[in-house]
Design a protein around this nucleic acid. Structure first.
Lengths: 340, 340
DNA sequence: TTGTATGCGTTATCAC
DNA sequence: GTGATAACGCATACAA
C-alpha cells in the first residue's frame, strides 16, 4: 500500500501553471472556463490520477450529495426492493446512499439516525422500526434541518412526506374477494397495532366485513403475530374453535405460510376448507402449493417514488411540504383463496 | 425548515469560555482533559444541539469511517443477506455503509467505484458484476490506496482478500449425493463461465462425475442459463433428447424452478423421474413442491466475515495481505433429489 | 477569462 | 491541563 498522497487541485494547478481556483472551476464545468483550459485540466487530472475529494467539497458546500436510508431489515424482500428503487434514482441523480438497519429496535434506529446526521446526509428516508412509537428521533433529524421522508411504516404524529400503499383500501378489496368466494367466517392476522400500516389493513378488513352486513368477528382478529410461527400457533387455536373461521386474511405472506402450516396440521384443505390471503407477494408466494393470493405492493416503484420526492419536490423547490403519496397496489388472486 | 446553522465546537467554546481545540479534545475523550470540563462540554453540547460534522473531521483526519459495498443487486437474497451481515459488523465498529448496485453492468460498477473513491471510503467490499472480466476498476481502487475485499464473485487476476464459499467442494459433494441416490445421467446448468464462482461449481460437478467413473456428459453441461426461464428452455431441450438426463444440478435455486417447470411441462415426476439440485437455499426452496435440495451458503455469515476481515486484518494490522477465506456451506437434502 | 482571498469545522502539533 | 495555530481540499465571492 504505497502511501503517496492523492493529487489535489493544487497539484494540477502547479503543473499547469494556473491557479487552483481556476482548476476547480474547470473541473466543475464552470461556464467561464475556456474549452481549451478545461480540456488541459481534465487531461492532467487523468495523468496525475487526480480524484475529487467529496469530503472537502461537502464541507465547503455544506451538503453531501448523500441520502440516508433507515429500514428495519435490509434483507426482507419488501425493503430490499424498495432500497433497490431508491438506489436507482439516487444513482441517476449522482447521489450516494448510506443504508442502516434498525433491526426493529428503537434504540438502534436512533443510533442510525445520529450517524446519518453526522454524515450531513441531505435527506433521510425511513421506514420505522416495529418498536418505534415516538417521533423523537424524527424530530432530532428535523432539528438538524434535514428533510425527512417516511415510507411504508409511518408515524401518525410526525408530519412529513409519506409514501405508502393504500393499505386500507387494498385490504378492503381483498377481503371482499374472499366474501364473494363465499367465505363467511373470516379471521384477521395482524401486526403490532401501533404501526399504522398494520392498523390500516385492519381497518380495511373491518370495513369489508361490516359492509357485507356480517358481524365483526372480534375473537377472530389477532394482532401482533407477524412471524410464520406465531401465525401458525394463533391459527391452530382459531381452527379448533367450535365455530372456526373458514378463511384467514393476514398482513404478510410469511404469516400465510403459518396459516397453511396450521391447516396442514389439522388436515384442513386449502382453499376448499380454508381460504388464505396474504400481503406482499414474496417470491415464494406463487411457488407454494397452493399458490398464495396476495397483494403486490410495487415496492421497487415505491422506493423510486420516495426518492424522486426528494429530488423533485424538496431539492428543487425547497418545499418542506407535508403530503402523503399513495402508491397503488394490486390484488393477486391465486389458488389459496379461490374455491369456486 | 428554519435555517439557523448547526452549532460548532466554536459555539461551544465561546459559551463555555474555553478554546475550541480544548472542546474538540473533550468531545474526543482525550486523556489530558479533566472530567469536570469534559462533563461541562458534553452538557453544553446537548444544550446547543451540537452535532459532530463528520465531513470536517474526515477531511482533517483523512479517513471516513465509511465502508463501500458494490453488489450486482441489492434485492437478491444472497446479496441482501451478505449486506445485512456486513452492516451488522460495520455498525458494531461504528462505521457507515455506502451501498451501490452494478446491475451486473461493468460500466455501472465502474461509476459506483468512482463514487466510493471520491467519498474516501476506507475499504471497498465488492462482488463483481456478471459482465466484469477485467480488474481495471479494482486497480483503480488500489491506485487510490483503498483496500479491496472481494466476496463471492471474485476476479482471478486480481490479488486481494477474497471471501468465498467452497464452491467446488460443496458442488462435488452435492453431485455425489445425486449419484448415491442412483441417478446416472446428470446434467449441469451453469452461469456465465467467466465468473469463477460458477466455473468452480462446474469443476466440482465434473470432478464428481469423473470420480464415479462415469463419462463426462459434455452435451449435458449448459453454461450461462442463470434465470428461471432460460434454465427451463434449456432443460426442455435436454429432456427431449433420446437419452435424456435423469437428474439436473444447477448453480442457483431459480434455475431449479425452471427445471421443475420443464419437468412439469413434460409430465416427468420429480424426484422419481428427474432429480433436481439447486444452490443458495432461497426462502422459497423449502416451500415449493417438491421441496428443493440445495446448498446453504451462510450468506449473512459470509458478509460478517468479509467485514471483519477489514477491521481485524486491514484496519488494525495494515496487512495488505492476499488471502482467500473459505466460508463453509451446507448441503440440504430435501425431496427433489431423494428417490430412495 | 483568470486569479486572490477566505472559510467550511475539525483535529494535530506544539507551546505554555 | 489548556490554548494558539495551522492544515485538511475544495469552492465561492470578489477583484482584476
Amino acid at each position: 500500500m504505497k502511501s503517496r498522497k492523492r493529487a489535489t487541485i493544487y497539484d494540477l494547478a502547479k503543473e499547469l501553471g494556473i491557479s487552483p481556483s481556476y482548476v476547480s472551476k474547470a473541473l466543475n464545468d464552470h461556464p467561464s472556463v475556456s474549452d481549451a483550459i478545461r480540456h488541459r485540466v481534465r487531461q492532467k487530472a487523468k495523468e496525475l490520477d487526480y480524484t475529487h475529494n467529496s469530503h472537502a467539497a461537502n464541507l465547503r458546500r455544506g451538503q453531501s450529495k448523500t441520502i440516508g436510508v433507515v429500514v428495519p431489515h435490509i434483507n426482507q424482500s419488501f425493503f430490499s426492493d424498495a432500497i433497490s428503487g431508491i438506489e436507482e434514482v439516487c444513482f441517476a441523480y449522482d447521489h450516494s446512499l448510506v443504508i442502516c438497519q434498525s433491526h426493529e429496535s428503537f434504540d438502534k434506529e436512533g443510533k442510525a439516525i445520529e450517524t446519518l446526521i453526522h454524515q450531513n446526509v441531505d435527506c433521510i428516508l425511513i421506514s420505522n422500526a416495529e418498536e418505534t412509537t415516538s417521533p423523537r428521533h424524527l424530530h432530532e433529524i428535523r432539528k438538524n434541518h434535514i428533510p425527512v421522508i417516511q415510507f411504508d411504516r409511518c408515524l401518525d404524529d410526525f408530519d412529513s412526506f409519506k409514501v405508502v400503499n393504500d393499505n386500507r383500501n387494498v385490504t378492503y378489496e381483498a377481503v371482499r374477494t374472499l366474501i364473494s368466494e363465499g367465505y363467511r367466517n373470516i379471521a384477521f392476522l395482524g401486526g403490532p397495532a401501533r404501526v399504522k400500516t398494520f392498523r390500516d389493513r385492519k381497518d380495511g378488513f373491518v370495513a369489508a366485513i361490516t359492509e357485507a352486513g356480517m358481524p365483526i368477528p372480534f375473537n377472530f382478529i389477532i394482532d401482533n403475530v407477524l412471524s410464520r410461527e406465531r401465525a401458525k400457533q394463533a391459527v391452530l387455536t382459531l381452527l379448533q374453535l367450535p365455530q372456526r373461521p373458514d378463511a384467514i386474511f393476514s398482513v404478510s405472506d410469511h404469516q400465510s405460510l403459518g396459516v397453511i402450516d396450521a391447516a396442514a396440521t389439522l388436515n384442513i384443505p386449502v382453499p376448499a376448507g380454508l381460504g388464505v390471503f396474504g400481503f406482499a407477494d414474496e417470491t415464494f408466494s406463487q411457488l407454494v402449493t397452493p399458490s398464495l393470493s396476495t397483494i403486490d405492493q410495487h415496492s421497487i416503484e415505491l422506493g423510486r417514488i420516495a426518492a424522486e420526492l426528494y429530488f423533485q419536490r424538496i431539492y428543487r423547490q425547497q418545499t418542506p411540504a407535508t403530503e402523503t403519496i399513495v402508491v397503488p397496489s394490486d390484488i393477486i388472486i391465486r389458488q389459496s383463496s379461490r374455491r369456486k
